[in-house]
Design a protein around this nucleic acid. Structure first.
Lengths: 190, 190
DNA sequence: GTCTATAAGATGATAGAC
DNA sequence: GTCTATCATCTTATAGAC
């Protein structure tokens, strides 16, 4: 059983992923965690603090997954890409949820500054990681090198985030599978 | 000068595109339009009514643009695709705004039912239109036909929505240009 | 740490005058 | 049609007891 602070973060993460930042309240979290909403303020004085903490933790969690993948897969281009794609496939079992930062990006201008910075940093982390994978793939001639690795990385990121968001709204998670299929082919043949 | 009802819809559309549905209030619209918030209830009794009306109008507006393009471009595959891409490029001049339905899809589970239906219908319209363009392109051998047109259409849609959303959060509208570039190449060579 | 109690403000919505 | 006035409810947040 996680401590109270982690339970609050878990609840907030889940709620933001399914409802967005503006829609959720301390009361919602209070109901899920089973403590009074005043108690939440003990851990996170303001909603801005809570938002920043949730994104920070989420960003770090994924960064660790990606770094671990890099360590075990070495320069196995398609294995690395599969690992990354798996992050997005994990949402299939909870169709109300999407990537936390995809959800937050949808209401970016109303987010508190610190949360904005973390969301921005999240996308930066991912783009750098994907770019690295693609660069290695281009060196090994697994991926065509007539396109800048950075453009390709941004493209992969946008596509996957978009597939999750549109997929949830159209109740078609297949979209995510299909998008990954297309990306794999495109990277091979571009 | 548009009538009051249209001014309200214009304002709501603008606000949702930049802030999302949950974050906006009758007060915000009241401030922009210059009428009291009680007056807005005269046109749209509940926020749910307003949401449904905004999406319905937006969906129709884009449907008309796409149908007009189909009528003038006939079977000019790349011309049609350019017209469609131009819809997304139009957001470059107002970097706070993204596609209304992309923004709404980011908080889909909390939307009123009727708004959900319209958002869903919006994506359906687009996917059908793009699929049609791709099918014609495959017949004319402009686009390779080893992939289902419907998958390709879904992929294009997801990518463009994702590029807008991620692009706004990372202050890099280039993302949209680059994604369109990649899509064009990918469709040609797949 | 968690609670009760409470504050100050915003929200969607309605009634009724003009 | 648009206004003022008002309502009940929800929001984030704080003070202080246990």
């Amino acid at each position: 059983m996680p401590n109270t602070q982690d339970q609050i973060l878990d609840s907030a993460e889940r709620l933001i992923q399914s409802q967005g930042y503006s829609a959720i309240s301390y009361q919602d979290i209070s109901n899920q965690v089973g403590i009074r909403k005043a108690s939440i303020h003990y851990y996170f004085p303001s909603k801005e603090d809570l938002a920043a903490a949730v994104v920070k933790r989420y960003r770090l969690k994924l960064k660790e997954i990606m770094d671990a993948s890099m360590k075990t897969r070495k320069s196995d281009t398609w294995g690395l890409l599969d690992d990354y794609f798996a992050i997005y496939l994990s949402f299939e079992s909870e169709p109300e949820r999407i990537c936390l930062c995809g959800a937050l990006a949808g209401e970016y201008p109303v987010l508190p500054k610190k949360a904005q910075t973390e969301v921005d940093g999240f996308f930066y982390d991912h783009q750098v990681w994907i770019r690295h994978v693609i660069e290695m793939g281009q060196e090994n001639e697994m991926i065509a090198d007539d396109q800048k690795a950075d453009y390709l990385a941004g493209w992969v990121l946008s596509t996957l985030q978009g597939a999750l968001i549109v997929g949830r709204a159209t109740e078609s998670f297949d979209r995510v599978h299909e998008a990954q299929d297309m990306l794999r082919r495109a990277l091979k043949r571009l």
